[in-house]
């Protein structure tokens, strides 16, 4: 599979503080790649370097096989979409007028506006002036803007951080549709459930370094202790170890028809992050 992003030994130092240290990873074409880490871990710095908004201190990064330092060409910009913390909207204009501008800049027909507003659940609010929108609605308009031209590569920095669960689900469905159409997605988040539901692979970023990188299910398996929780009809919940000892006990309860449910105790990505880094993902 072709790599769309390749990063080798990337480092970024602000003053005497290292924001990124020896970061290396690849993102395959068509993949949704999750970059997970708490605030200040270097996620936004990485996106800014990969989108040509910030120069790295050392290391190599290529996007579409082009060094990121030469990514300011319009032909490249047409292929990407970017949402970061500094993606602004025109406050005095309506949602429609904001999106119309970007339709013209990206040479996209204006009928696409209805499609993207459907994706972010804002079809009823087209004429609303941006200055009157809530934080969540602003975030959805910004996302709609990034979806307009169906980019080959979409960089999303905490795309659902200000959204309620219903609207987050709308955005996730929209992202899945885009991904199915071929958009590669580079997603930063500290929401583990978002990462689990969207990402093929995830990287854990902590203190500017990648601590782990793999598929969520592989990581969960790797960090699982193989134990299971058995809920019995008398209300007890038993944590049983894996292996023959646990199997014998489970068999005992099953054969006497005492079992209500059996769950494997795989850790969540959040649990794994805490285990690896010693801190919560907030």
């Amino acid at each position: 599979m072709e790599n769309i992003i390749e990063v080798k030994s990337l480092a970024k130092i602000f003053g005497n503080k290292a924001a990124l240290e020896d970061v290396s990873f690849q993102v395959e074409k068509g993949e949704t790649f999750g970059f997970l880490g708490p605030s200040g871990s270097g996620k936004t710095t990485t996106i800014k370097i990969l989108t040509g908004q910030l120069l790295q201190t050392s290391g190599d990064a290529t996007v579409f096989n082009l060094p990121v330092t030469s990514l300011n060409k319009p032909s490249y910009r047409k292929r990407i979409g970017v949402i970061t913390d500094n993606s602004g909207l025109y406050q005095r204009l309506s949602i429609y007028d904001n999106l119309k501008l970007y339709c013209d800049l990206y040479d996209v027909p204006t009928k696409r506006i209805d499609e993207v507003l459907e994706m972010v659940n804002l079809t009823e609010d087209t004429k609303k002036v941006v200055s009157k929108l809530s934080k969540g609605m602003l975030q959805r308009v910004t996302l709609a803007r990034a979806f307009l031209h169906e980019p080959e590569l979409l960089f999303l920095d905490e795309p659902t951080s200000a959204l309620d669960p219903v609207n987050s689900k709308h955005i996730h469905d929209g992202l899945r549709k885009l991904n199915e159409k071929g958009t590669t997605i580079f997603l930063t988040t500290h929401d583990m459930s978002e990462a689990e539901s969207l990402c093929k692979r995830v990287a854990f970023l902590h203190k500017g370094k990648i601590q782990l990188l793999d598929e969520p299910k592989v990581l969960r398996r790797q960090f699982s202790d193989s134990s299971v929780t058995v809920e019995l009809k008398d209300g007890r919940e038993l944590n049983l170890p894996g292996g023959s000892k646990g199997a014998n006990e489970i068999y005992k309860y099953l054969s006497t028809d005492q079992v209500v449910s059996i769950h494997s105790n795989e850790p969540t990505l959040g649990d794994i992050f805490v285990e690896v880094t010693g801190r919560e993902l907030v």
């Binding site: 908004q53 319009p74 032909s75 910009r77 993606s87 602004g88 909207l89 970007y102 990206y106 040479d107």
Partner: peptide, 14 residues
């Protein structure tokens, strides 16, 4: 100030 200039800079506009 409103970070909209960066949006234009990241668009295909020269």
């Amino acid at each position: 100030e409103k970070n909209t200039l960066r949006g234009l800079m990241l668009s295909p506009a020269t």
